[in-house]
Design a protein around this nucleic acid. Structure first.
Lengths: 346, 346
DNA sequence: CGCCGCATTTGGATCGATCCAAACGCATGC
DNA sequence: GCATGCGTTTGGATCGATCCAAATGCGGCG
């Protein structure tokens, strides 16, 4: 019977050793499943583990062995469903590998990011997965992280020689644009995002390239900038219809912006999927259940999270692996928000 | 100039001591801001910190001092926006207190929860915040956690003498129901959730009580059970209209279910806020931007997260604090999904 | 001149695990 | 009887910080 003994002191490896008359070293070997120990001894020690309710002290082990089983994950904001999904993927993969996730969030502030990095580094993580805050300085990050901890940059470019996992933003926007072109649209806007963010820049490039391939020049007045939030996007929807002719469709910076645009359209008596076509980017869970369901570019953030975790674990096992830049593929998910141009507008 | 020296070994406190000709003990005192050390010495040591690029090794310090600055947070699923918000709140408060968040997720499996608890305990956290997986056994949790680590149970009841932070589910459902009654509804359903979850049970109780106060008996056929997901809820929407007369309004188990119900209604040619009133529970971010925006019960998960963090920190500083049960208040957030009963249905 | 008190500094033990070289018991072979 | 080898076990040093009792330097005071 495991006794819920309210003992004052924690049980250590020495207690186990004393308890069954072997040395600490032997107990340690059992702990790590070494084939060296005799089957009998192993059984006795393991019984003692249960009897005394031993819990392994990983910090002590790490101190001696110099390795660590924690990985730091730093995102801007967990309440962003895209990052939440990503974090869930990271945690899932790390847990599967027997590692634990150290969480940090920056709230898009480069200053806080530096503090969070410093704080997490004190726990000597095996690696760091960082989605850089806007405006972060690659050199500052590199200086803070140092040469001992592998770093994987996710989602945004960061100046410097970093391991990178990014989305194929350019190709995704291209897919979205081509989809609208194939439906018959000719007057297409690019809606939302901040021009100075690398992901927005890349998506705009893909958009412009797809239009160019179809022999269409992007209309500067239809490249509308907004904060990447629903609310801001809803407010700015009017900018699309400032002049005549107005666009009949929009490629949006991301799903949040697209959902905001849907609201903004509704407020102006239009409805996406009926008299205006909207395409998002990310395929966050809400995209499938908005009204109408949003056509978007699927990035599978959970799978990206798992991928990031595997990458950082591989690098922490073998520090000689060179930093690589991975561009994860994306795919078009067609739902109902993208319609053909209505006749009276075409 | 901070030199980005690619030194092979990590800088330790001894290196600093050697570097400026004092003992390790003195350096340690500087590190902890002790008033004992001479201002001159302190300055010299701090200069050396910067020069050598020292990073504190918290694991080593914890080993000796027996304390830890990490707090474990275990939730079912980060991709649930309610938990994501909660986690963001926890992390925010912990970071403010100089602590770090250890993340774990159970995916609603009691078995995985036990594994995750075991894994996180090996890092000797200062405390654990646990949102128990469905069907978890309080005794098993208590046995696993032991007496050395303060535990705060969040969101769900767990049999046993635990520190608890829960929502006022009963009162929230009562508010929702009273709101619909005040609008003139008399035929009101309770939609979604699993009967065996404690939160669903409490919400149902509040619902039934509010109806009873108005002299109305709850109709068993209108207590519809579903998994607490959008998809499942959308599928089950038809169950409300199986018989005549049908309800004119529904109190939903949570927002996810309410959003699903809105979709299910639309698929049947009805629209919430026009010919059927819907009230949710939680006030997740999507609630404000669904169509129409959802009337719901605000629980402020981010504030709950901060509250949980403060509670567990207080307990870890003073273990003699008795376990307490806190029921956090909730409030009604009226939006557009709750309308008066339409005349032809009333 | 020697002793005291104050401010500051220090060596050594310690936390709980791991690593390593060495030792142990025992059967085998010459 | 002694060296050899194998399977198993072990003591002691070690990781990087903290804790504590004791030492140090120094100015003042009887």
């Amino acid at each position: 019977m495991p006794q819920a003994d309210a003992s004052p002191r924690k049980v250590t490896l020495s207690d186990i050793a004393d308890g069954c008359g072997v040395s600490r070293a032997t107990v340690s070997l059992v702990l790590r499943g070494s084939p060296l120990v005799n089957a009998d001894t192993r059984a006795r020690v393991q019984a003692e583990f249960r009897k005394q309710g031993y819990v392994y002290n990983r910090a002590a082990a790490n101190l001696r062995s110099g390795t660590s089983s924690a990985v730091a994950l730093i995102v801007n904001d967990l309440s962003n469903p895209y990052f939440a999904e990503f974090a869930a993927g990271v945690d899932e993969a790390l847990a599967g590998a027997g590692c634990v996730t150290l969480l940090g969030s920056t709230g898009e502030s480069a200053e806080r990011q530096d503090q969070v990095l410093a704080s997490l580094l004190e726990h000597a993580p095996a690696g760091i997965i960082l989605s850089p805050a806007e405006g972060s300085d690659g050199a500052a990050v590199a200086r803070r992280v140092g040469v001992h901890t592998p770093l994987l940059v996710f989602n945004r470019e960061l100046a410097g020689d970093f391991d990178l996992l990014a989305l194929d933003n350019r190709h995704g926007a291209q897919l979205a644009t081509e989809h609208l072109l194939a439906l018959g649209h000719r007057r297409i806007a690019f809606f939302g995002g901040h021009r100075d963010s690398s992901s927005c820049r890349q998506r705009r490039e893909g958009f412009v390239a797809a239009l160019a391939d179809a022999g269409i020049a992007a209309e500067p007045g239809w490249m509308v900038e907004t904060a990447p939030t629903r609310l801001e996007a809803a407010r700015q929807a009017g900018a699309l219809f400032a002049r005549d002719p107005a666009p009949t469709a929009a490629v949006c910076y991301n799903d949040a912006v697209a959902l905001g645009l849907q609201l903004g359209l509704a407020a102006r008596g239009r409805q996406s999927g009926r008299d205006f076509a909207v395409v998002g980017f990310d395929d966050i869970p809400e995209a499938a259940v908005s009204s109408p369901p949003l056509t978007t570019i699927g990035t599978d953030p959970r799978a990206r999270g798992r991928q990031a975790a595997y990458r950082i674990l591989a690098r922490s096992r073998d520090a000689t692996i060179a930093a690589t830049r991975t561009i994860a593929p994306v795919r078009l998910v067609v739902r109902e928000s993208s319609c053909k141009p209505s006749k009276d507008l075409a």
